[in-house]
């Protein structure tokens, strides 16, 4: 028996919005410690890694490990039926071919149940090694989304350049060039408003605008985003999911022609 109950059901709705444009389907690996999802996007350019710890759920039970292959378009349709203040429970029998979503209104007066067929997915799991990154940049997630959106008007790529002074985002294309510099902030009232650069070595890498913009669909999950960069390895874009876990996007850098 697998059962995971989340009083703050809106988090699950937001997680779905953050992955459904990148992935058509994905396996949810449910284990005693929590739920993991790891999948490459359809073009194998980026990787999504989602981690929801059991401690983050209001009730979590997983008697034996199960892998639930889900069509994310279908799951997204079902989660759209949940209100933002609904309590969401996911449950499945040990060797079931369906998963059930239960949505309870806060006053328990309305209870909806949706059963969805599971899929057999044969997905390549990638091993993500522990990496020491040269630059780790924390910035407000809304600011990052704004920068990606603004720069995507100029070209298909965004160059992210990190030095000890701060971080520079640039793009160039037919209409001209754009440069946005963010300096490290001094003291701020709210930690989530800060721009913090932890740099060992300066790094400049180029990434696809299209993918960065898709990652920013996770913005509602967290006020802060963390970018980790090293030369010649994928960028990591991480959003915390409340107290439950995190979503990480790995994007391979673009290579000059």
């Amino acid at each position: 028996m697998f059962e995971a109950r989340l009083v703050q059901g809106s988090l699950l709705k937001k997680v779905m919005e953050a992955i459904k444009d990148l992935l058509n389907e994905a396996s949810f690996d449910c284990a005693h410690s929590g739920i993991l999802l790891q999948a490459m996007d359809n073009s194998h350019v980026s990787l999504v890694s989602l981690n929801l710890r059991k401690e983050g759920f209001d009730k979590y039970r997983c008697d034996r490990n199960i892998v639930m292959g889900m069509n994310l378009t279908s799951m997204s349709k079902i989660l759209k039926c949940a209100s933002n203040d609904d309590i969401i429970t996911m449950k499945a029998q040990d060797s079931a071919d369906t998963v059930t979503f239960v949505f309870e209104s806060p006053n328990q007066e309305k209870v909806s149940e949706y059963e969805m067929k599971l899929m057999n997915l044969d997905q390549d799991q990638l091993g993500i090694p522990e990496t020491e990154y040269c630059c780790i940049i924390k910035l407000p997630s809304g600011e990052f989304a704004r920068i990606c959106r603004d720069l995507s008007q100029f070209g298909e790529s965004i160059v992210i350049s990190c030095t000890k002074e701060g971080v520079k985002f640039s793009a160039a294309g037919d209409i001209g060039t754009a440069n946005i510099k963010l300096a490290q902030t001094g003291t701020v009232d709210k930690e989530e408003d800060a721009v913090i650069v932890d740099m060992q070595e300066p790094v400049t890498l180029t990434f696809s605008c299209k993918y960065l913009n898709m990652f920013t669909k996770a913005t509602p999950l967290s006020p802060q985003v963390c970018l980790s960069m090293s030369p010649d390895v994928p960028l990591v874009v991480e959003y915390k999911i409340g107290e439950i876990g995190h979503i990480r996007y790995y994007l391979a850098p673009r290579i000059g022609d």
């Binding site: 350019v45 180029t206 790995y250 673009r254």
Partner: peptide
Amino acid sequence: NMSQSLISSFFSPS
């Protein structure tokens, strides 16, 4: 024209 690398070339299958 810049080529986009595949993510699988960076991470070995586990």
